[in-house]
Design a protein around this nucleic acid. Sequence first.
DNA 1: ACCTGAACACCGTTCAAGT
DNA 2: ACCTGAACACCGTTCAAGT
Lengths: 202, 202
Amino acid sequence: MARPSKPKLNPEVIAEAALALVDKHGEFTLPQLATSLSVSASSLYNHVQGKDEIVELMRGRAMAVIDLPESQPESWQQTVRLIATAYWSSYSKHPRLIPLLTSHTVRDRTTLRVYDALAEAFSQAGFEATRRLQAITIIDSFVLGSALDAAAPQQVWEPDDSSSPQFTEALDAGLPSAQRAQSTFLLGLDVILEGLRSVPRA
Amino acid sequence: MARPSKPKLNPEVIAEAALALVDKHGEFTLPQLATSLSVSASSLYNHVQGKDEIVELMRGRAMAVIDLPESQPESWQQTVRLIATAYWSSYSKHPRLIPLLTSHTVRDRTTLRVYDALAEAFSQAGFEATRRLQAITIIDSFVLGSALDAAAPQQVWEPDDSSSPQFTEALDAGLPSAQRAQSTFLLGLDVILEGLRSVPRA
DNA sequence: ACCTGAACACCGTTCAAGT
DNA sequence: ACCTGAACACCGTTCAAGT
């Protein structure tokens, strides 16, 4: 039974299975992936170039669910808020994927669409090209950093005896992590949007 | 020549050599590391528990150079700005290290000191425990995200034919990357500090 | 065209053996 | 106490062989 009449694999199926492994274990290997697809590891190479391409496909799957705002709502702040939240939300559904994504150039169309939408919003708000790129980068850095925060092990920080009371008190006041990550992200996004209002745009 | 009279290794030397490898290649393996130290891979296990511990030691080395502000300058904004900038700056000296750090809980004292200092600054500014943790997390997410941006391959985004003109125009306006990353970080930090002024602190 | 199994060079880690 | 070399289970990738 070397070649089935109908192929057992395709890039989407591979990406989806890899995503399931990462969600469960935080990483994946080709042998694991092959086993979960009831196939041998070398079969994967008939559909993808290698492990790196699988990671890029996973990025695409994670981003595919993003709903970008169609018409422009009230203000550019509201538009940026919707985009950034959708973006953060997709990442946060697969928190353990994020560390795998940070070393590759973004070529995935689904992901680039998000930046297109941000660029248009800032452009409409009057941000000239250089400022526009800065604004996009600031939002992107914060979204990525916040999603990483959600990706981090339950305990992001483990204070020791010499930690300051101001820090340990703050840590103790934290909510359970999923909830906390979300509300902190939303607060930070508002903080940035508020701050961006007073930045010169040219 | 099994055991030298003076040990050839210690954790600091190991971390420093690993950091050099990561700076050069973006990753490291134990055999590579051992070779660069003129030692066999198994020797490393007399000084560290394994690869994970080496990563944590590297975090410590990268953070060791941080100079925290001793006395409190003019404003809490200025204090936070100094801490965050020093923090970002240390990370940015080893940009390719960052992706390796994002999956571990922070236990390194040198690193935790940074959060202690931030907690004290926000506390002095009147931020209550819960708000304080949120403010710290927002700053931390942005510093980490920005440093990741500096870590990314020369080309963070590779637009294709269907990218919006607003996005490609912004990309073309960008400066060479090192310079750009720094000035964008500083702008974003100011944006956040400005926005934090109007957040309720309790 | 698409799957398999064997093969390759490499990895992290363990451990008995040496001094 | 500290280094070595052999060994183990595992990894990503290639390739000839099958249909």
